[in-house]
């Protein structure tokens, strides 16, 4: 499967950087700066080569300061009320204070996974598009 992915090297690099950030932070929680640097590099590469990051990766990186958000180490995670019977998860970056909010909606489907997001191609091509999803997906499910 991996042979026909176009920017395989770049995806491998992104994958490595993301893992490296986790690795560095896991061995020594003091190394926030280093993990941040790796995430920053990762973000820049994907920006430069126009590669989409998987939402699961994106959600663990602070939008403002590029820190790797690990609950309890570099971020706090809280449940908040928003509307009646609705709760949201608030993730706050400990170094810059930027918050991310996610509605607790179990039936939510990511845009990329929705059928209407796929362009309407003939059957054979749409299959190929599906395989082009970044390999980052598989490895980041830590």
């Amino acid at each position: 499967m991996a042979t026909n992915v176009k920017d395989k090297d770049a995806y491998l690099r992104l994958n490595f950087l993301y893992q490296a950030a986790h690795c560095v932070l896991a061995t020594n929680p003091e190394n926030v700066e280093l993990a941040r640097f790796y995430c920053h590099t990762e973000k820049n590469i994907s920006k430069r080569l126009v590669l989409r990051q998987d939402p699961s990766v994106k959600r663990t990186i602070c939008k403002k300061c590029c820190s790797l958000l690990v609950p309890g180490v570099t971020a706090t995670v809280r449940q908040r009320k928003c509307r009646q019977r609705q709760r949201k998860t608030v993730v706050r970056c400990l170094s810059c204070g930027k918050t991310k909010q996610f509605l607790n909606n179990p039936s939510y489907v990511l845009w990329g996974d929705r059928p209407e997001s796929q362009p309407q191609y003939p059957q054979s091509q749409s299959k190929q598009v599906a395989t082009q999803k970044p390999p980052v997906n598989s490895k980041t499910a830590r």
């Binding site: 003091e30 190394n31 700066e33 640097f37 300061c65 810059c96």
Partner: peptide, 14 residues
């Protein structure tokens, strides 16, 4: 903010 500023003492084993 010294976002990427590394501390001078680092342990190699880490």
């Amino acid at each position: 903010m010294k976002l990427f500023h590394l501390k001078p003492e680092q342990q190699r084993s880490v």
